[in-house]
């Protein structure tokens, strides 16, 4: 998961996926360009999504014949458990 989060492009993809669930590769590509001014090829985004999916941060399913991607923040809880937020003194 830490490797998956290490690449700025992959963090931007996660940002894009906070907009809404069930986004196609086309929508993610468009949002990266429109909302984040990041221009990546379809192949590059596809590979980043595979890494994120491997880390459990993105889930995908087919809706009809289109593959749609959603953010899954559950693996991030491990970070909060490992380094808990301190109450201000």
């Amino acid at each position: 998961m830490y490797d998956a989060l290490a690449a700025p492009a992959r963090r931007a993809i996660l940002d894009v996926l906070t907009a809404r669930d069930h986004q196609s590769l086309f929508e993610i590509t468009t949002r990266l360009l429109g909302d984040h001014d990041i221009s990546l090829t379809r192949q590059a985004i596809s590979q980043h999504l595979a890494v994120l999916e491997e880390a459990g941060l993105v889930s995908s399913r087919r809706e009809g014949r289109t593959r749609l991607h959603s953010l899954d923040t559950r693996p991030l809880r491990a970070i909060a458990r490992r380094w808990p937020d301190k109450e201000p003194e």
């Binding site: 809404r20 986004q23 196609s24 086309f26 929508e27 468009t30 949002r31 429109g34 909302d35 809706e63 009809g64 289109t66 749609l68």
Partner: peptide, 24 residues
């Protein structure tokens, strides 16, 4: 069926619809 609901991209608002005969 909409694959993508209306989405605002600044100068343009777009959506993607399934044409029922194989295309978006």
């Amino acid at each position: 069926t909409f694959v993508q609901p209306p989405t605002d991209f600044g100068p343009v608002v777009v959506a993607v619809i399934d044409d029922t005969v194989g295309n978006l």
